[in-house]
Amino acid sequence: MRIEITTDAAEFRSRTESFLLRDPLRHTVITTSIANQVEGVQTPDRAARFLSVHADDATVVGVAMRAQRWDVYLGELPEGSAGAVADALAEVVPESTGVEGLVGDATAFAQRWSDRFGVTFRPSFGTRLYRLGALRIPDVPGTPRRATESELPLCLEWAAAMHNDAGIPAVALDKAAIGKRVAAGMIWFWERDGRPVSFAAHQIPVHGWSRIGLVYTPAPHRGHGYASAVTAHIAQVLRAESLDVCLFADTANRTAGKIYQAIGFHPTHEFVHHEFS
């Protein structure tokens, strides 16, 4: 087994694309991050690291990354390799403060990191990945519309509030990327009585998939189905473009899981984020 690390998102995509295409749903975060950087949706991050694991015949058998000021994110890895991946990344990004991945891999990575640096770790949040099956459109008062560039401050405010509610560090909020998504028409409001009451966004399509997220409804407007409505509308728009659709939900937020399943999403994978202290 050999591990290679690069700072070049385009080089990494070229090296690993056939592997990622085997399961584009599982790797939606990695493929979207690469596409956003290569296509200019996100500002290239000098601290980014993209890791590939190779078998003896040079075939790619695993991937991981640290990009856009995020902590380490693990893609599919060969069984028992999480510790070696932690060692490799510890050499180049020792300042990383957490890791996210499938529960077993992320925990094994965190344990190796803990042993190496003499730190502790704890689960800070969990997420569940859903894919869209048969879409069901809820009957909810109001109408969808795309956010305008003049509403960027409101989009940023609600995105920050969503991160805060989920316990996700504010550093993960890429303000420039949100601005570009507004400009590209990828953020939608659900509007009631002439004012926005909920919003949701989607990522650029990659390998036939588009991922929905951010999704947020301010507390005074919750309980009316607005988040379900705007999410279902975006899913319908993406489906009309012949795209498969997925999204993540915070495992601690039972309401989110219920509303997504009610409109046709099915759980596929469970992830955990471990924070190093």
Rank of each mutant, 00 (worst) to 15 (best):
A84H: 11
A159D: 03
A134C: 07
P141E: 10
A86W: 01
S114F: 10
G101N: 10
D139F: 07
E151W: 03
D174Y: 01
D115N: 14
S150Y: 00
D105V: 00
M162N: 11
G167F: 13
T127Y: 05
T127I: 05
G80M: 03
A147V: 15
V119K: 12
K175S: 13
Y130E: 06
G126K: 00
N164Y: 08
C155I: 11
D139A: 12
T120A: 10
A176L: 10
S150H: 09
P141V: 07
G104T: 13
L154T: 14
A166M: 13
E79L: 05
W158T: 08
E157Y: 13
N164K: 14
R146I: 11
V93A: 13
E151F: 02
P169C: 08
A110F: 00
R128D: 03
M162L: 08
S81Y: 11
A108P: 00
A82S: 15
R128K: 09
V119F: 08
F117A: 01
D115T: 06
V85D: 06
G167C: 06
S124W: 02
P153D: 02
A147G: 02
D105W: 01
I137Q: 14
L154P: 02
D174C: 03
V99W: 02
G104E: 15
D139N: 10
S150T: 11
N164S: 14
A161T: 10
F121L: 08
A170C: 04
E149S: 12
R146E: 11
A177M: 12
L77C: 06
L173W: 04
F117G: 01
H163L: 15
F109H: 11
S81R: 09
V93K: 00
G133E: 15
V92H: 02
S96N: 04
E79H: 10
P123W: 01
E95Y: 15
P94H: 04
G133S: 08
A134W: 08
F121A: 15
D87G: 03
L102W: 06
P153I: 04
D105P: 04
D174A: 05
A159L: 05
K175A: 14
E95L: 03
A84L: 14
A147R: 04
E95P: 03
L77H: 00
S96H: 03
P78D: 05
D87Y: 00
P144C: 06
S150M: 05
I137T: 13
L154C: 01
E95W: 15
P94F: 04
L132Q: 12
F125W: 14
P153W: 01
V119H: 10
E79R: 09
L152M: 02
A134H: 12
R116G: 00
K175V: 13
E157A: 15
A170H: 13
A172G: 00
T120E: 11
A160R: 12
E95Q: 15
F121V: 08
A172N: 09
R122Y: 00
E149Q: 09
K175D: 12
P78F: 10
E91N: 02
